[in-house]
């Protein structure tokens, strides 16, 4: 199916996302923070990036900004996994170039529905 990069400093959240997506047949790579995600992105190509907002080393917003500066990641969907229900984080992410967001908490079904939505 699709190649997806899951970025979250929380092993449980990352594990849940990866497990769910793998179960749906996707090929998932994992990264613990924005910096490692950029390394992974440079070393491979992904159809979708799912990223937490708050992470040590490099947060999700900066990561999106850097990814979008890479020609290969123009137009590649990037979804922010965010708990903020208010709009500022979403808008900050959007301004940095994120495609959309998935509001935590989400269950595996919601995750798959959103991924399906964005991958078409």
């Amino acid at each position: 199916m699709a190649k997806i990069l899951a970025v979250d400093d929380s092993a449980s959240m990352r594990g849940m996302v990866a497990f769910t997506l793998r179960g749906a047949g996707h090929e998932v790579s994992e990264a613990e923070n924005g910096q490692l995600a950029l390394d992974a992105a440079r070393g491979g190509s992904f159809d979708l990036v799912l990223a937490d907002v708050n992470m040590p080393v490099m947060d999700g917003i900066s990561m999106v900004r850097e990814l979008r500066a890479m020609p290969a990641y123009k137009g590649v969907p990037i979804l922010m996994l965010t708990t903020e229900s208010h709009t500022d984080k979403k808008m900050e992410g959007k301004a940095a170039g994120a495609t959309g967001w998935l509001v935590k908490p989400f269950d595996p079904e919601q995750l798959l529905a959103t991924v399906k939505r964005v991958l078409g």
Binding site: D9, S10, S12, M13, M16, N54, M55, P56, T83, K104, P105, F106, D107
Partner: peptide, 14 residues
């Protein structure tokens, strides 16, 4: 903040 934030988000998910 980051630690609290992760706990909040994860707790709801799990």
């Amino acid at each position: 903040f980051r630690a609290a934030h992760s706990i909040k988000g994860g707790a709801a998910t799990f």
